[in-house]
Design a protein around this nucleic acid. Structure first.
Length: 416
RNA sequence: GUGGACGUGGCUCAACGGUUAGAGCACUGGACUGUGACUCCGGGGGUUGGGGGUUCGAAUCCCCUCGUCCACCCCA
């Protein structure tokens, strides 16, 4: 058998890339109006970066990272997510000399998981991070930016859930409370939850095993255990979200799989098209991460969007510029064609010339299969009169058009 | 990592263990050397995912392996 791609590593083919490009360009055009600048980050980082940011007991670090030793003996890893590298760059390149830094990035991430629809070992995220802004308005504005972006893409059925995980003042106390609560019910918990009860009891909250759901039904809620500043922050986030016209669903059981989150966390899920891998975007606040990684005290907020998943739930495709197929009949027409086609391309028009010489019928057929919007024919008759025949393939109408006017027609300028 | 379903021309799918594995769509040539989608006629295309086994005989049954999908897990 011929060599196949590695499991979970896909080619994004023509026909899909148009939509991908549209997704990324729309993100860029929306995010930049909020003051974001693009940053290009490496795909490989020192393994330690992820251990210290994502957390050593998370699933991502424990069983999903592509980690290996390079020729020098250093342990390096393919990045499983984008926030940690962004934070590393922020600190290393001293981007904190600006009062607020807003970064946008896109690219592949890697996790060794069992592939499924919407879940691949190499997958693409686009993300944005706001550095140095502690205001709840930053949370609300960034979330609303994301919702606006989804709206612009025509995404339907996307639901926003938010929660607050507290901070280093109130979360330890809550953890303790929850730990004690769970300890009294160890008989009802699944094996998995028993294992994580010590390392991260919060994870038991979103376990889907019936016994665990039952056991945690009346568990203490994080939202009732927030310290005053955290509670105030969360209330402000919600107040400003509503001013932006965004109405989230409160989900006090939503726990993120990365350790660095503090206070606000959120998740956007799709109701169709994704099966159980239905999280399209997620993010939150991480006020301690920059300092924990050796940078100055810097409150941050960010999110990431899964591009494959977004592409799967997008109803409309990418907007498409008209395509023209140019057919020259005879040598003289071909020579004139070079001039005409060059000029059209100069004007930004998409033109493909059919270089074959068979029956016009077959050449028309070929143009049709290329989904041409227009076919332009230049033959002896047209050469004599200084025109081209332009056929509108969708309307099945054609007309003789003077050379200078042809560009207007095939650029779609006068289509109804 | 666990459990399950499924892998047959480019695509969607047929074929009870029994001739040379078929059909539709697609492709290609012609009817029709200046007009696509419709029609008619012809043509090419398969190591039945891969490997091993059972059998006189395997697409079909068994084992292994690879892959896709679904659920769990987890997450974007």
């Amino acid at each position: 058998m011929s060599i196949a791609s590695v499991r979970g590593f896909n080619d994004i083919l023509p026909g899909e890339t148009e939509l991908w490009r549209h997704i990324e360009e729309t993100a860029w055009s929306v995010f930049r109006t909020y003051g974001f600048s693009e940053i290009k980050l490496p795909i490989v980082e020192k393994t330690e970066l992820f251990l210290r940011s994502i957390g050593e007991t998370t699933d991502i670090v424990e069983k999903e990272m592509y980690t290996f030793t390079d020729r020098h003996g250093d342990s390096i890893a393919l990045r499983p997510e984008g926030t940690a590298p962004a934070v590393r760059a922020y600190i290393e390149r001293k981007l904190y000399t600006a009062p607020v830094t807003r970064l946008y990035y896109t690219g592949p991430m890697f996790r060794y998981e069992r592939p499924q629809k919407g879940r691949y070992r190499q997958f693409y995220q686009l993300g944005a991070e706001v550095f140095g802004d502690e205001s709840p308005r930053a949370d609300a504005e960034t979330i609303s930016m994301l919702m606006r972006y989804f709206g612009k893409l025509g995404v339907e059925g996307a639901a926003l859930q938010i929660n607050s995980l507290g901070d280093r003042n109130c979360r330890p106390a809550y953890k303790e409370k929850l730990y004690n609560y769970l300890k009294e019910r160890t008989g009802d918990l699944c094996e998995n939850c028993l294992k994580r009860i010590d390392a991260n009891p919060l994870r038991a909250l979103d376990c889907k095993v019936p016994g665990c759901m039952e056991a945690t039904r009346n568990a203490p809620s994080i939202l009732e255990s927030l310290c005053e500043p955290c509670e105030a922050h969360f209330n402000e986030v919600r107040r400003f979200l509503s001013l932006y016209g965004v109405t989230p669903v409160l989900n006090p059981r939503m726990v993120r799989g990365l350790d660095y989150y503090t206070r606000t966390t959120f998740e956007i899920t799709a109701d169709t098209g994704l099966g159980s891998q239905n999280a399209v975007a997620a993010g939150g606040r991480y006020d301690s991460l920059v300092s924990e990684l050796g940078g100055p005290d810097t409150p941050c907020f960010g999110f990431a969007v899964g591009i494959e998943r977004l592409a799967l739930i997008m109803k409309g495709g990418a907007p498409r510029k008209p395509l023209t197929v140019f057919i020259a009949l005879g040598d003289e027409a071909a020579r004139k064609g070079i001039e005409l086609v060059s000029a059209w391309r100069e004007a930004g028009i998409r033109v493909v010339e059919d270089f074959s010489t068979g029956a016009l019928k077959n050449r028309m057929k070929k143009a049709d299969r290329l989904s041409a919007d227009f076919v332009v024919i230049l033959g002896e008759n047209e050469l004599r009169t200084g025109t081209v025949t332009i056929k509108d393939m969708k309307k099945a109408e054609q007309a003789d058009v003077e050379w200078q006017r042809a560009a207007v027609v095939i650029s779609g300028g006068n289509r109804g």
